[in-house]
Design a protein around this nucleic acid. Structure first.
Lengths: 225, 225
DNA sequence: GTGTTTCCTGAAGCACTTGTGAAGTTCTGC
DNA sequence: GCAGAACTTCACAAGTGCTTCAGGAAACAC
């Protein structure tokens, strides 16, 4: 999760593809390139990138169709980059599952800014922040805010919250949590429960919505309700 | 999130604000409007919208500053909508935390398509999902929805439903079910029947179509009828 | 060295889940 | 329409899982 973000560029004009690739590399991203729709789709499945930059007019398989198929199984942000500049093309592209739509000729600075904006949402490594609902965790600074209010956490509390907040909506069993946050311990106690209690007391002061939910018989999950 | 999404529009040109508001309402969104930066920010904190449409040139408090402050504590998508069309303005806006940047004059269709795209992302599509008819099981999150309504299940109920929902249309004998969901038990009781009853009571509230069907002399099956 | 905070344990109390047997209902074949 | 089988529902007891509390050891700050 904290490796360099990987961007896949699917673009049949090789000059443009190369240009984008170089600029992305200069920003510190890993890159992959494909020159037609079918190769793009299979490469997508192979490398599972953090973001996809997609031309619409592609040989073999249309870009729109690529977007739709990617969306069937993946949540990865898609930026469409194309010369087709009509409003209806834009609407169609966005409704096919794309997250952004940029017209050629484009400014590379704008493209890079948009790439940053989308990656920021998906990949905490980019900003060093994790955000869920009104909870903000600054991983570098080890700061936590709930709805603007600063919350002081101890080291273990922070680790536990980080695990949950990086995977919002996923239910973790006590065993999973213990393995990750208390790797040195052999279990047999209720540390996890106790620390969940600590977090709740600090994060869910009277009147605030519940963030950490108990799933009886299974474990705990952090999610907005 | 099953309610109508709420969009906050912060825009000082009242005609434009009104126009956007009407169009959003026509699409089925709830809307709120503010005409300057400070009001916008306090309204944001008050109503906690699902999406923010933000002008840059605002009285009292600059739009960029609003974006930054919102981002300090919130994850809500921000679409900047402005007449400032230079590349550096765009880069600055996106880096201030905005998710999208649209130039005035804009096409309302494009704005609406972008609103849809961003809202789609906030409501995260879950990976481990099983769908049968209007039943949705989120396996990672251990959540169950019937026709949008959330259904609370105990651990055993969930296991049983998961078995049936993973194999819609397949008839399971009581013996098969008992083997898989109650492997530790030696049988001889009517647990399966009782738990099917629990599920029915929760999943088939008055008026809803039957999901779990009895196959007399054989067992049970989950299917759409 | 003293005081404070963090970390972990064990135990008590409570609420919910689970499985059972029996009673009640529906279905089927004759 | 009846008898028996199959299925559903009910009420309850036992068990389990969760939360909280209090306390001691360890780490840290001053």
């Amino acid at each position: 999760m904290d490796r360099k973000p990987l961007v896949l560029v699917v673009e049949d004009e090789k000059d443009i593809a190369r240009f984008i690739e170089l600029e992305l590399a200069a920003e510190g991203y890993q890159t992959e390139v494909a020159f037609d729709g079918v190769t793009g789709l299979s490469k997508f499945r192979e490398v599972n990138p953090d973001l996809l930059i997609l031309d619409l007019m592609l040989p073999v398989l249309d870009g729109l169709e690529v977007a739709r198929r990617v969306r069937k199984t993946s949540n990865t942000p898609i930026i469409i980059l194309t010369a087709k500049d009509s409003i209806s093309d834009k609407v169609e592209g966005l409704d096919a599952g794309a997250d952004d739509y940029l017209i050629k000729p484009f400014s590379i600075e704008e493209l890079l800014a948009r790439v940053r904006a989308h990656l920021r949402r998906v990949n905490p490594a980019v900003t060093g922040e994790v955000r869920v609902a009104d909870l903000v965790m600054n991983l570098d600074g080890r700061e936590v805010f709930r709805g603007g209010r600063r919350v002081e956490l101890s080291a273990k509390e922070f680790e536990l919250l980080e695990l949950l907040a990086r995977n919002p909506g996923k239910v973790f069993s006590r065993f999973e949590i213990e393995e990750k946050v208390w790797p040195e311990y052999t279990g047999g106690s209720n540390v996890v429960d106790v620390y969940i209690g600590y977090l709740r007391r600090k994060l869910e002061e009277s009147g605030e919505r519940r963030l950490i939910h108990t799933v009886r018989g299974v474990g705990y999950v952090l999610r907005e309700e």
